[in-house]
Each structure stands twice: as C-alpha cells, then as structure tokens.
C-alpha cells in the first residue's frame, strides 16, 4: 500500500496537489490550511503532485519507481560541480 508523507513545515497551502490529483487523495485541512492525505488507497503513484508542488513537501513510499533513463548523467555530473 502506498504511504504518503506531507512535510507540514514545507507545505505552503497552495492546494495545487488537491486540484491536480484525479483520485482525490488530498484535501486541505480547514484549520491549518495544509494538505492532508485522506484517500491514500486510491493513489496510483503517478507523482504529478510531486511535479506540481512548489515546495517538494511530499514523500511517497512503497511505490513502483519508474525508470529514469532520460537522465543525462554527464550533465548531472557537471551540475553537481556547479551547485
């Protein structure tokens, strides 16, 4: 089963993940105005919430991590030296 962790300190409460998720996995907490996970069972681990989150506040565990053969390791090596 997918486990989703929200870093409440990082979450800015923009609600982008709530709008983006097609399976209504997230909901805004009315009191804290932070994202909360309400329906993790329906998460299909597409990770579009990761892509849309401006503060990288989410962590998904126990998911199939798709291969990332598109990553250019030579470019990453150069970036690592700069950043």
């Amino acid at each position: 089963m997918v486990e989703i962790e929200i870093d409440e300190d990082a979450c800015v409460g923009c609600g982008s993940c709530v709008d983006d998720c097609p399976n209504d996995v997230y909901k805004m907490n009315e009191e804290t105005w932070k994202t909360t996970v309400v329906n993790a069972d329906d998460c299909m681990a597409c990770l579009s919430c990761h892509e849309i989150c401006p503060s990288q506040a989410m962590t998904h565990s126990n998911i199939h991590v798709a291969k990332r053969l598109y990553i250019d390791r030579k470019v990453n090596d150069v970036l690592e030296k700069i950043i």
């Binding site: 097609p22 299909m44 681990a45 597409c46 990770l47 579009s48 990761h50 892509e51 998911i63 199939h64 991590v65 798709a66």
Partner: peptide, 10 residues
C-alpha cells in the same frame, strides 16, 4: 488518456 504524471499514466 485519463491522467499523466512523471511516474505513471492512467
């Protein structure tokens, strides 16, 4: 196509 994401597409 229902939904697309960086890790999976439905």
């Amino acid at each position: 196509i229902d939904h697309v994401g960086p890790n999976a597409c439905l």
